[in-house]
Computed example of a mutant assay.
Amino acid sequence: MQDDLLVKIRESAGPNPAMELPPKIFKEMEGEFLEYIDGQSLTVRFPVKESYSNPFGFMQGGMIVAAIDNTLGPLSLLLLPPSITTYVNTKFIRPVKMAYEFIDVTGFAVERSPMRIDLRAEVKSPGGKLLATCTSSSAVMRRLRG
């Protein structure tokens, strides 16, 4: 799944020597593609690392948003030409505990046009509890369009 989906993402992105896929941060966060439902959703698993903890012993919000971005980015590439995020809004519902081995982030396509895509994401614990939600919009980069 991992390698097949990565090939599909690279093909969707088109030839662009400036794009590194997967990006360094995806590799650093050890993202693992779990499921792609064509044109609808992408689920990625991220380990919860001690180095991601905030002063209260929970996963720092910025790292949760990074996991979301590392899910919505590949999903957007599978749905449209390369785009950049123009809006992101994250709601934290429950803390991500350091005791969790991982979090699963699922990104969903909400609406798309030739120049824009709206996405949403859900972050869940290993037991399936909803931890955070996100809405996002991205605009297709004109100079990278074919």
Rank of each mutant, 00 (worst) to 15 (best):
S83I: 01
M63G: 00
P82F: 06
L75D: 08
G39E: 14
Y87F: 13
I68E: 03
E35M: 00
R45H: 03
Y52I: 10
L77K: 10
P55A: 04
S41R: 06
Q60K: 08
K49V: 03
P55G: 03
S76D: 09
T85F: 01
S53D: 11
L34N: 06
I64M: 11
E32C: 12
Q40I: 11
I84T: 13
P47M: 07
S76C: 11
L80S: 09
Y36Q: 02
V65N: 10
Y87P: 00
N54Q: 10
V48E: 12
E32G: 05
M63L: 14
G62Q: 12
T85Q: 04
S53Y: 00
G31H: 07
L75C: 11
K49T: 05
N54K: 07
L79H: 02
R45M: 09
P74W: 03
L42Q: 04
L34Y: 03
G62N: 13
A66G: 10
F33W: 13
L78Y: 07
S83F: 01
N54M: 06
L79D: 01
L75S: 09
D38F: 07
L72G: 01
M63P: 00
Y36S: 08
L77I: 06
S51W: 14
S41W: 07
T43Y: 02
V44R: 08
Q60W: 05
K49M: 15
E35T: 09
I84L: 15
F33K: 01
Q60L: 04
D69R: 09
I37D: 14
Y52N: 11
M59V: 09
Y52C: 11
L77E: 08
T71P: 12
L78A: 07
I68G: 06
P81V: 00
P74C: 07
A66R: 04
S41I: 04
L75R: 10
I37T: 14
S53I: 09
E32H: 05
L42W: 03
Q40A: 13
E50M: 12
T71D: 05
V44G: 08
G62F: 12
S76A: 15
T85K: 00
T43W: 03
F58D: 15
F46M: 08
E35F: 00
L75M: 11
N70C: 12
P81W: 02
V48K: 03
L42H: 05
S53W: 00
R45N: 05
L77M: 15
E32Q: 15
L80T: 15
N54G: 11
L80K: 13
I68F: 11
G39N: 12
L80M: 12
V48H: 05
L78H: 02
L42V: 07
P82Q: 10
G39Y: 04
P82H: 06
L42S: 10
L78C: 10
D38C: 06
I37K: 14
I37N: 13
L80F: 01
F58L: 09
M59F: 02
F56T: 11
P55Q: 07
S53N: 14
L72P: 03
M59N: 02
I37M: 02
V48R: 04
N70I: 02
L79E: 15
S51E: 15
I37G: 00
M59T: 14
I68D: 05
I64H: 02
V44C: 10
L79W: 01
G61R: 09
L72Q: 05
L79K: 01
P47F: 08
P55Y: 08
M63H: 13
F56L: 15
L80G: 00
L72V: 15
L72N: 03
L78S: 08
Y87S: 06
E32N: 10
Q40W: 00
